[in-house]
Structure formats: structure tokens, C-alpha cells
């Protein structure tokens, strides 16, 4: 499925591996948390980049001690209304200082895209029939933010400017 970065489709190097799919000889793979735990040695032995998928009920703490081995963490939205991944992403960045790629997949709508980037998500996976200008547009619709978060810098509200640590230099 197409992967969007900053609203546009990118060439994706990752293979999203189902639990019953055979491991390819090489190339970057994304596996479930369960498979990562079961096949950790085999995965690290491949010397290719590793990503792990978290279901929405799997908190960031489940993976926090492994983050050094992971180039990507993928967060699932089983339904777009299930907003747990927003906290998971933010915890990965803010609490665990994770610098790798955070990817959102599942049922996501363009209207959530800006929020996703603001909690530290880099890329989103979108069904092919849903790729369109709405995604890039969604990042530009609102230029002001009222609370400190992650991601790109927005225009700053009175509150935001005065919240410590975010006053522009």
C-alpha cells in the first residue's frame, strides 16, 4: 500500500510481513510485536533494518527496551476513532527519546494527519484509492497550534508562546 511522507507517496523500502509469511533473505521488514519477540535472534542476524508493529492496545512500554534495535515502529489504527496510537507515538518520542521512523497504518483519515505529525509520526500508510491531494492539503489547513507538541513548528498562539521552552528564540 502507498506510504505517504509529508503528504506525498514515497518509494518504500519496507516489507510488511504477516506472521505466517516467510522471512525474506534480505531487505527491511516490519513484523508484529509477537514475532519480534519470538524471532528476535533471527531478525537481528539478518543485519537489515527491523521494524515492529504495535496494535492499538499495545503500549509503547512494550517495546521501549528494544528501541535501540529498531529503525521503525508502526502503530495501528484499527478504526480511525481509536486514538491510542496518538499517545503511543508521543511516548515513543517524548518519554523514550526514539529517533527512528514512526509509521501509522490502518484506518486513518486525512483529517487526522496534522495531529499525527504533531505527536511524532513520520509516515502514514494509505490505501491506493485514498491517495489524493487531501493529505498534503491537510497539513496546511491549520497553521496555528495552541499547545506544545512534536513535529514541525507551527505559528504560535499566545498560550503556546508563553508556555516555557517553546518561546521562539
Amino acid at each position: 500500500m502507498p506510504v505517504l511522507d509529508r503528504g506525498l507517496p514515497i518509494d518504500d523500502r519496507w516489507t510488511d510481513l504477516a506472521d505466517d509469511q516467510d522471512m525474506p533473505a534480505d531487505g527491511a521488514v516490519i513484523v508484529s510485536l509477537e514475532r519480534w519477540r519470538a524471532d528476535r535472534d533471527a531478525l537481528t542476524a539478518r543485519r537489515d533494518a527491523i521494524g515492529v508493529r504495535l496494535k492499538s492496545n499495545q503500549l509503547a512500554t512494550e517495546i521501549s527496551s528494544d528501541l535501540g534495535s529498531l529503525s521503525l515502529v508502526a502503530l495501528e489504527f484499527p478504526k480511525f476513532r481509536d486514538g491510542r496510537a496518538f499517545s503511543a507515538a508521543r511516548e515513543l518520542r517524548e518519554r523514550f527519546d526514539y529517533k527512528g521512523e514512526i509509521r501509522a497504518f490502518g484506518h486513518i483519515i486525512p483529517d487526522q494527519y496534522l495531529f499525527l505529525t504533531r505527536v511524532g509520526v513520520d509516515t502514514v500508510v494509505v490505501p491506493a484509492d485514498r491517495v489524493g491531494p487531501a493529505w498534503a492539503h491537510a497539513l496546511k489547513e491549520i497553521s496555528v497550534a495552541f499547545q506544545p507538541a512534536l513535529g514541525r513548528e507551527e505559528g504560535t498562539s499566545l498560550l503556546r508562546r508563553h508556555l516555557k521552552g517553546t518561546v521562539p528564540a
Partner: peptide, 11 residues
């Protein structure tokens, strides 16, 4: 203001 379009707490 803080709660307006809060990126983490809107869903």
C-alpha cells in the same frame, strides 16, 4: 486554548 485541537487527545 490548551485543549483546542489537542493533537493527542482528540480521539
Amino acid at each position: 486554548q490548551w485543549s483546542t485541537l489537542h493533537p493527542e487527545f482528540t480521539y
